[in-house]
Computed example of a mutant assay.
Amino acid sequence: MQEPRRDARPGIDPTTASVARMYDYYLHGKDNFQIDRDAADRVAQAMPEIGLLAQENRSFLRRSVRYMARQGIRQFLDIGSGLPTAGNTHEIAEEITPDARVVYVDSDPVVLAHGRALLATNDRTTVAQADMHRPREVLDHPETAKLIDFDEPVGVLMIAMIHFLTLDERAPVISTLRDALAPGSFLSATHVTTEDHSAHAVDQIEAVYATTPTPIYFRSRNEIAPFFEGFTPVDPGLVTIDQWNPESDQGDAPAEKVGTWLYGAVGRKD
């Protein structure tokens, strides 16, 4: 059955829950409204470990950025970056590549405002307000063009984002992004899964996100794998995010692992 889409609303709307602000609340941030906290609390009823899961998802982001930087990636496109928090992509990349360039992309105007304030003095990092559902908007954005050279390899991050794409959107969005990338580029992404979880819990969470401009779609591992089509998976491939750690980065992981809600992978464009 075809999954419905709801387009993101322009402007800051404190009366409608925002995925970016909900995620900020999961990470104990302060850039959220009561409507976001209420929605996030309803998610927590079905997924009590959501706070730890958000931390583990950020840990996956950091490990994958380090991996890509060590493979020589010097420019990153972080799509659906959310609100700034500890261990941002540019901070991790700069640990390995001090002159790394990063473009953060998000459709939420709150992210744009906070990101610009944070990065005002960093000329190698910028923020673009664009919607991943319209990938050309992301790729052609003036802020993207300022820092990203698509003739050179790029590390694309879609952390906890591809589960907001419908099945009809998957191929055109991913193929447009992939076709724009030079060989040697990488895609890092995570996606919520139905596996080992009750249908009732999944339905409850999907119902909460259906009240936002960004519905979420839980899928099985076999349904998630096609999102990486055209990319060669880095070992260990598509696994629950607690298992993805090819360089044994033991210093960067939550104390308690709860990764069975999310699959993740990093793929290379050959």
Rank of each mutant, 00 (worst) to 15 (best):
P213D: 14
N122A: 02
E152R: 15
H114L: 07
L83S: 12
T214H: 03
V192R: 02
T15Y: 05
D242A: 15
I92S: 14
L83Y: 05
A207S: 15
R37Q: 10
L165P: 11
T176Q: 11
R42F: 06
D108E: 14
T166L: 11
R268W: 09
A255I: 15
A8L: 06
H114A: 03
E137N: 01
D123I: 02
S248D: 13
K30P: 00
A117I: 01
T89E: 12
M161N: 11
T121H: 11
T214I: 04
D131Y: 01
D24S: 13
D270F: 02
I79G: 03
P84Y: 02
T211C: 09
E152C: 03
H141Q: 09
G155K: 06
V202W: 04
Q75L: 13
A39F: 05
E56S: 11
D151L: 10
E229L: 00
Q75W: 13
P215F: 06
E143S: 08
W244L: 08
P213F: 03
D252S: 09
V105W: 02
N122E: 06
P153G: 13
V19K: 05
K257G: 11
A39Y: 02
Y217N: 06
T214D: 06
E94F: 05
D36Q: 04
V258W: 05
M1G: 14
Y263W: 15
D140T: 03
I96K: 09
A20I: 05
P172L: 08
F60V: 09
Q250S: 07
A40H: 10
T260K: 09
G11T: 07
S18R: 02
N57T: 14
D131V: 00
K30Q: 10
A100I: 12
D168N: 11
Q2E: 14
T15M: 08
P98F: 14
D203G: 02
T89S: 15
G155I: 07
A39I: 11
A145Y: 06
H200F: 09
D270T: 14
T194K: 03
E152I: 01
P236Q: 10
T193F: 13
H163K: 12
V43N: 07
A255G: 15
G80N: 06
E95H: 04
I92D: 08
G264R: 03
L147V: 08
T85L: 06
I224H: 06
S220I: 11
Q129G: 01
R101M: 09
A130I: 05
R9M: 02
M161F: 00
E195L: 07
L53T: 07
R219P: 05
